[in-house]
Amino acid sequence: MKFVKYMSPKHSVKQLQEIACQVRRDIVRMVHAVQSGHPGGSLGCADLLVALFHEVMDYKAKPFKMDGKGEDIFILSNGHISPVLYSTMAHAGIFDVKELATFRKLNSRLQGHPATHEHLEGVRIASGSLGQGLSVATGIALSKQMNNDPKTVYCLMGDGELEEGQNWEAIMFAAHNKVDNLIGIVDFNGQQIDGSTKDIMGLTEIKDKFEAFGWLTLDMDGNNMGNVLEILNKAKSMSGQGKPVLIKMKTDMGAGVDFMMGSHEWHGIAPNNEQLANALAQLPETLGDY
């Protein structure tokens, strides 16, 4: 991992990288503990989520307000990467880090896929059945426009998830209706459960598609914290000008754990004891394990 010198208002890039490193540790430990879950995409999106929740988004960690009035809001559409969401939110102070130990267990608020049903702070919509988050984010963005609330709604989607048609309904709607307080982010790791997105359903150039629908687009190196911050700030500067903004975020599935990278194999399987030890050796404990 390349450490870039970049000072930002709340944290240095190095500090954010350290948080992301702990989040990655949590992800592999959480998935290992219950021998289920989705480590690959979670690891790939750790830098983005840490940048959003710990630096870029303007919100109060406590008390959690469902309506998020006056706050930036994050919607996770590809809900299977719940481990990264839970760990990032816990370390941001939204709920107790100790609760990460309950992930996917009976009577937990940390369901396999995020849910509001058990009243976990920070989650505003259930996701897991793919393709629905962008519509929800668009609806929240509309409510902010109606309320003259200048804050931004961020929505993370998977690249394979774009195969779901509902996304394109939302993409068309948001451009037509000038939903310009909406920033969509596509985790472009090129992998889905059955193989590479190229083989399963070629997406061609997604930026061209979004631009053709009337969105502004940006590229992001999603596993380079300096670039993540730079592009998020740029996206924010481009919003409010009549068009929604899409960030094509290039990531490595499994980023941070060498043997999990570069393949779809680690989309949805858990490491064994030996693999866990190997992964943790690559991810120093920076904030203390849960």
Partner: peptide
Amino acid sequence: AEANMIGMAAGLATGGK
């Protein structure tokens, strides 16, 4: 686009509408 309509309605409700 009914699927998007239902999703946006969920979002609007989240925002207090």
